[in-house]
Design a protein around this nucleic acid. Structure first.
Length: 302
DNA sequence: GTCCAGGGATTCA
DNA sequence: TGAATCCATGGA
């Protein structure tokens, strides 16, 4: 298999620890890693490099599957299998999508798009930083945050650092955080980190709650409203029904489903809850990615 | 220089 | 309940 020694790998950057191959037929790595659900993946040629926990990971799509390389020897790859959700039967999920024209169009043009299962704190913190920011800007802020306050990691094409722990962030001050360029989001991130560290909210127990209770709990954190809570529950909590409604999705729903009749945001939210079914979050990600990639200008219309 | 970005909190009617 | 406004920052 030879991912670590493959000549197509970037010279001097190949994972020297170990590698692994999974046979997966319908997994679009590029779409999944670049679709705005995670913010730290970098593309180098035909491979992707990023950090999961404290492991620097290289990923590549190869014939009929995914190759992974790590710089630290691994005996158990379950952490990566979980992150990538490799064993999820994608067709069983997309078969549940509504059969309407816009949904099928999004499905057909984004085949293999998956949902990741991210670390809860990293996902929460990243999306607190996401409000009224373009994805490229969110990536930059997260990068600076890790660069300044994360722990240095072994391996990689660039000097990777871990995502700073909730304790590390809670121990900082607003000036430290604003220096990362996050502006008015700094007190939100700091306040949320401190609430969690002070046990005013048990982040891990949120994962044991049903969707409505978990959402309600997360929204107690400063800077976390319905949209960010739903992103966290979808991308880190495994709540497939969570349907984050942002400006892109509002425009997508209005233009794709109700092109002739103006709907209020409230009406569109209600529609999203009843129309997309038990895996609505998956459907949402398909619509989001479809709009971003295939209709980047359409989304800017009033 | 202007507009806008994977929003949330606050205010006011 | 809902509309308006403010919040920093930087890319397009």
């Amino acid at each position: 298999m030879g991912f670590p020694t493959n000549p197509r790998s970037i010279p001097g950057s190949t994972a020297s620890g170990c590698s692994r191959f999974w046979k997966v037929l319908d997994y679009d790595l590029a779409a999944t890693l670049s679709s705005g659900q995670a913010f730290r993946w970098e593309r180098f040629g035909d491979q992707w490099e990023g950090v999961i926990g404290e492991n620097v990971v290289q990923l590549r799509s190869s014939l009929g599957g995914i190759e992974a390389g790590a710089f630290v020897s691994q005996t158990d790859w379950s952490w990566l299998e979980k992150y990538l959700q490799i064993y999820v039967q994608l067709d069983a999920i997309t078969d549940c999508f509504p059969s309407d024209e816009p949904m099928q169009q999004a499905l057909n043009t984004c085949k293999g798009l998956r949902l990741l299962r991210q670390d809860l704190w990293e996902c929460l913190a990243s999306f607190i930083l996401s409000s009224t920011k373009q994805i490229v800007q969110i990536r930059r802020i997260v990068h600076r945050l890790c660069d300044r306050f994360g722990k240095p990691l072994i391996g990689g094409t660039i000097p990777w650092r871990s995502f700073p722990s909730v304790e590390r962030i809670a121990a900082l001050n607003e000036v430290d955080l604003r220096a990362c360029g996050m502006g008015f989001r700094a007190p939100y991130l700091l306040g949320s980190a401190r609430m969690i560290c002070n046990s005013e909210l048990d982040l891990n127990s949120v994962l044991t709650l049903d969707l409505v209770s978990a959402r309600e709990e997360l929204m107690k954190l400063p800077g976390v409203g319905r949209k960010i809570a739903d992103c966290v529950l979808l991308f880190a909590g495994g709540h497939d029904r969570a349907f984050p409604v942002d400006v892109w999705i509002l425009k997508a729903l209005q233009q794709l489903y109700f092109p002739r009749r103006k709907k209020t945001d409230r009406q569109l939210r209600a529609f999203s809850e009843r129309h997309f079914g038990p895996h609505g979050g998956f459907a949402q990600q398909y619509l989001f990615h479809y709009m971003r990639v295939h209709h980047p200008t359409l989304s800017k219309l009033p």
